[in-house]
Design a protein around this nucleic acid. Structure first.
Length: 677
RNA sequence: GCCGGUUUAGCUCAGCUGGUAGAGCAACCGCCUUGUAAGCGGUAGGUCGGGGGUUCGAAUCCCUCAACCGGCACCA
């Protein structure tokens, strides 16, 4: 006999080997009907599974959040059956659940297109309506191999071979159709429901390896209810509206063109935003770091020394004199990183232990030949500006430096309203330089720091390990932030490097007069300023906080009688440090309001005869219909205060709390609450 | 780089089975002096992504290159 413990704490005895279905049917017909699977000691399991040991048991109904992954997984199976029914000869491979849905990879000579979706979806609905039970069989490896080989399912044969010895080879049937699968599944296909949709087709390498053949992947989404599906589709539309490429065009921030794939043409407004970000970062590092500037192109020998030429040559740009008769035909590489340049600066002149830690920062422009398919607006470009720095320090100083960087990164993110951060430690990759002893040591230090980061945050910062994801020269921390609509972006990074200083022969003179090699830490907060700008555009949906808005104030006249006053208002706003323009065009005020609202100008000052006579302004804020009439001087003072960047608020004017509405404090830093679209 | 798709006016898009291009908005010119998300009328604007081919004839069919989009792979 075994003892099962139910969610309400009740315990009951059953013969060993009883199935979940038998248990639930013994409790209540209605419960059995609702149940699609069970959880044994918290683990999702087929309802028909025989229960061998004492366990906590819970019956999972279809609307249980845990059932969602089953719905999606089952849906993937149904997709595969539908595809094989409609397109005989198609081989199935794998079909896992992913965030918001699932996919299934197929092998077929003719790829699928979205035009195939209606037919496939119809077939899927048919299979779901048939409501065949999912039933599991455990096969021997030989049988599985043989059956799939005979069916011409060569990828499945490979999958069978990949199952570790000692693990069952499980086959799930849904009627006549079956698939090799780890499970679990719901009780029948009918439980999937109708809240699913095929989303897109894409190529994907077999087993995620570019050396393998390419399969056709069909992505789908599936939800417990139509309402959930609709909500998800709405969300996608919302995300599309915030696409920085679209907003970049609509707000006239930047553009790309054919002659410069992956390099940005920043327009005046976009460049204002960009420079505002750079200025912010400059202020944040002032005092601690020294800013430098290293050359854009350097002899390739330097990159050979650093190791980049060996490791990343395929992804580097090289330049040479263009003249056929030039006497110097050496190859120069456009810098893909700033570190070798900074090591040269460190090496110039003798350094003492008293100089350490030495922190060299650079807003360096780097170029990397990214694969053509990788480019994506500002988020992945071939030329970008890093808010980069290299810290030369002793081993004893290393942990403190990492923690100091951590403070800078977290407080910076907080200033932009990012407060959900995950710090990941990436450990040694297969392809690397340096001894194992060195890696052991470096990872040791980093692990210790990671724990300290977590402890200091009071549990607010989550941490994780990314095995094998480190840089070739050392382990690294990656800072992942979550934006206003829940998407994660890896931005900041701290990388410990025991290699480069040694490769370049950098040293300092220690207490005892001996030469010692410093440890180098690479660090970036925004990472790529271009990318960070893109993330901010999407995060704020173009509705920037006043200090970042490229154009902060638009003065709009209602009639030409207010023109002189409008010029005066704009001039005064400009003198108050605000970025302002005046719209004196002969247009209706509704027209102007619409146009500047679409351009996402945060503040409209509307001026008519009345305002000119009374020396007031009528203020309208982006995203609100509210009109607020106030004296000119008062309005300008209000806006001037609000436009103070978050880092300066505390230092310059402690009494200034900026926007009265929606601000919160995190670790003592001002946070601009997420702006809604 | 790989798979699939797309590329027509500044922007968003139409153009069926091949018969030398069309709308809305924007721009420009007038009229309207206007009170918080589109006043009215007119004018101009395109080597249909580049190159090659098939054809009496190509935006339309084929080849090729490029850029972009969605994924995959990559991301020092």
């Amino acid at each position: 006999m075994i003892t099962l413990t139910f969610p309400d704490g009740a315990k009951r005895q059953y013969p060993a080997g009883t199935t979940g279905r038998a248990v639930v049917e013994g409790i209540a017909k209605s419960l059995a009907k609702r149940t699609v699977a069970m959880a044994l000691d918290g683990k999702l399991t087929d309802l028909d599974e025989a229960i061998a040991h004492d366990a906590q048991i819970e019956f999972i109904s279809r609307d249980d959040p845990r059932a969602l992954e089953l719905i999606r997984h089952d849906c993937a199976h149904v997709l595969a059956e539908a595809v094989q029914t409609l397109f005989p000869g198609t081989q199935v491979t794998i079909g896992p659940v992913i965030e918001n849905g699932f996919y299934y990879d197929f092998a077929r000579n003719e790829p699928f297109t979205p035009e195939d979706f209606p037919a496939i979806e119809a077939k899927m609905r048919e299979i779901i309506a048939r409501d065949k039970p999912f039933t599991k069989e455990v096969w021997s490896r030989e049988k599985a191999r043989q059956v799939f080989r005979e069916k011409g399912e060569h990828f499945k044969v490979e999958l069978v071979d990949a199952i570790p010895e000692g693990e069952d080879v499980k086959i799930y049937f849904q009627g006549d159709w079956f698939d090799l699968c780890r499970g679990p599944h719901m009780t029948s296909t009918g439980k999937i429901g109708n809240a699913f949709k095929l989303m897109k087709v894409a190529g994907a390498y077999w087993r995620g390896d570019a050396r393998n053949p390419m399969l056709t992947r069909i992505y789908g989404t599936a939800w417990a209810s139509e309402a959930d599906l609709d909500r998800y589709l709405k969300q996608l539309e919302e995300a599309e509206k915030r696409d920085h490429r679209r907003l970049g065009r609509e707000m006239d921030l930047f553009h790309f063109q054919e002659e410069g794939p992956g390099v940005v043409f920043w327009h005046p407004k976009g460049w204002t935003l960009f420079q505002e970000l750079v200025s912010y970062m400059r202020r944040r590092i002032r005092g601690d770091y020294q800013e430098v500037n290293a050359p854009q192109i350097l002899d390739k020998s330097l990159w050979e020394t650093s190791g980049h030429w060996d490791w990343y040559r395929e992804n580097m740009f090289a330049a040479q004199s263009a003249g056929d008769e030039a006497e110097d035909k050496r190859w120069f590489a456009l810098k893909p990183m700033n570190c070798p340049g900074h090591v040269q600066i460190f090496k110039h002149g003798l350094k003492s232990y008293r100089d350490l830690p030495l922190r060299l920062a650079e807003f360096g422009i780097v170029h990397r030949y990214e694969p053509s398919g990788a480019m994506h607006g500002l988020l992945r470009v071939r030329g970008f500006t890093q808010d980069d720095a290299h810290i030369f320090c002793t081993e004893e100083q290393l942990a403190d430096e990492c923690l100091k960087i951590n403070d800078l990164i977290l407080s910076t993110y907080a200033d932009f309203g990012f407060d959900e951060i995950v710090v990941k430690l990436s450990t040694r990759p297969e392809k690397r330089v340096g001894t194992d002893a060195m890696w052991d040591h470096a990872e040791d230090v980093m692990m210790h720091v990671l724990k300290e980061i977590e402890a200091r945050s009071g549990g607010r910062i989550k941490t994780a390990i990314n095995p094998g994801e480190g840089a070739f020269y050392g382990p690294k921390f990656e800072y992942v932030l979550r934006d206003a609509i829940g998407r994660d972006w890896q931005c900041g990074t701290t990388q410990v490097d025991f290699n480069l200083p040694e490769r370049f022969g950098a040293f300092y003179i220690d207490h005892d007069g001996a030469k010692k090699t410093p440890v180098m830490v690479h660090r970036a907060i925004c990472g790529s300023m271009e990318r960070f700008a893109g993330i901010l555009i999407e995060h704020y949906a173009g509705h920037f906080p006043l200090w970042l808005a490229p154009l902060q104030v638009m003065v709009c006249t209602i009639t030409s009688d207010a023109d002189d006053y409008a010029r005066e208002v704009a001039a005064k706003a400009g003198r108050a440090g605000l970025r302002v323009e005046a719209d004196l065009r002969n247009e209706k005020i509704t027209y102007k309001v619409r146009e500047h609202s679409l351009a996402k100008v945060p503040v409209l000052l509307v001026l008519g005869k009345r305002e000119a006579a009374e020396r007031t302004v009528n203020m309208r804020r982006l995203g609100s219909q509210e009109q607020r009439s106030l004296p000119l001087t008062e309005a300008l003072e209000l806006l001037r205060r609000e436009a103070v960047p978050p880092d300066l608020r505390k230092t310059i004017d402690p009494s200034n709390h900026g926007e009265p509405e929606r601000h919160l404090t995190l670790d003592g830093h001002h946070v601009v609450a997420s702006t809604v679209a």
